[in-house]
Design a protein around this nucleic acid. Structure first.
Lengths: 250, 250
DNA sequence: CGGTTAATTGAAATATATCAACCGGTGTGG
DNA sequence: CCACACCGGTTGATATATTTCAATTAACCG
């Protein structure tokens, strides 16, 4: 299933580099002292191990319905979380980029959606049992975990608003602003966006067709709001106009 | 703001009837022994108190942007959670019925959406500090809290699928099946649904107009799938057909 | 009962999807 | 090195689902 798997156990590695990432992400420091406890593997025979996994473009990391035993952190690349209909229709529920986590929201049950690498991607996999261990020792961690879930929920609710009540132009603009916020890199002529995704992914995130996405991006390009150096790159030249578009004031 | 407010403090009430409700909902029992600790009010000066509040139809329980200090349990009635645009567009993110909780997902920050009573409604309000207290003592409780949030997230993701990729008929059918699942009462001629909401609420949940909702319900009525005894009541006569419709097989 | 509000139905307008053609880069093999 | 094929992206023309606007009917309430 997965290629290029490099597994290591904290008990033998002598350090906890990836968990440090979790700690850092969670925005706490008084917490890192707890991390050493992670390798004790309290769950019936299974040592608590983190693995580094690599996936190639379009490869599934886990699928809707798989038994859920782990959560993941993106090290490099990009991941899409999506649901599929039998007839091929697809809805993307969200994207994950380096530093972000996925697979948290289904402790011990089954994954409710499919995670796929959008490009060559490296992730770190943590068994859910890690959470139980950490949970036992750190109150700070717990509240951060809850905050993480709340953040995802809030994101999903904004997504609902987009799909239910925004026009095409508003959705595209909102999408670009969201990506800007998460992945924008400043340049002289605006803000650069490496989307790392094709038009179909954008369409499936926004509940549109690929043609509609194209047309709308072209419109924004013609209006001087965007530049499109490559199919997976966008330069936002006039953020203010984009914001107005997102708010239906254009 | 709120009418008919009856506040009481556990420290003086001598029992924890409403928290018992939480315990019951969370589906645990070894947990109830902990509930006694709830009234100690550990948070700077504020005693941990639960209040019973009543709201009339269309009254706001809290609004998008309000500082978030409490979560709620519905005792009777029905609550909608929604987001509003400046121009009046509205998206309903979810409904809450007796026994269900809302306001959990924004610990200490601001509410990200507005909660309104859809009909005369009674709720119990718990300060978020309750959670912190309980959190300290019960591992079982924590995992249930996480499960609760995960459940909401999963619900939101299904909602995304509906809004993004389902046709009108599929959405209406899916909506009715969801309601059936949560609130259906068996009858001789089918399953009775007290929607407790108007067509506009359905429309705003499904990202449609009120006219489209009407037409589609009428279609299903004509097809013999539904009966419509009153505007806020629906009898599902042919569940199988409704399921087929929801799955795009009609 | 009248008067108000919500629900329903009809006809026209429109946004978006669908179908189809074309374009442009990228990689491959002759 | 060029020709070709391939894949994703773009654009155009048409179809259609859904909205919008308008009128009618049904439920609710004093």
């Amino acid at each position: 299933m997965s290629i290029g798997t490099k597994t290591f156990n904290h008990a033998t590695s002598g350090q906890v580099p990836d968990m440090g990432g979790l700690v850092a992400f969670l925005g706490t420091n008084g917490f890192s002292g707890e991390a050493e406890n992670w390798d004790e593997g309290r769950v019936s025979g299974f040592p608590t191990a983190a693995s580094v996994l690599e996936f190639e473009r379009n490869q599934a990391i886990f699928s809707d319905g798989d038994p859920a035993g782990s959560f993941y952190k993106v090290t490099s690349g990009a991941v899409r979380l999506c649901k599929l209909f039998a007839d091929g229709r697809r809805q993307i529920a969200g994207f994950c980029f380096p530093g972000e986590y996925f697979g948290l929201a289904c402790q011990g049950k089954e994954y409710a959606l499919t995670a796929e690498a959008m490009i060559g991607t490296t992730v770190v996999r943590f068994p859910h049992s890690c959470l139980a261990d950490l949970d036992r020792s750190s109150a700070e961690f717990r509240s951060h975990l809850v905050a993480l879930l709340c953040g995802e929920l809030s994101l999903a609710q904004n997504h609902l608003l987009m799909l239910g009540r925004q026009t095409v132009k508003e959705r595209i603009a909102s999408f670009l602003l969201m990506m800007l916020d998460r992945r924008g890199r400043d340049r002289r002529d605006g803000v650069m966006l490496d989307l790392h995704m094709g038009r179909q992914d954008i369409a499936d995130y926004l509940g549109l067709t690929i043609e509609t996405v194209c047309r709308t991006i072209s419109d924004l390009k013609r209006a001087g709001v965007l530049g499109v150096p490559g199919p997976r790159e966008i330069v936002v030249k006039k953020i203010r106009l984009l914001q107005d578009t997102a708010n239906g004031e254009a």
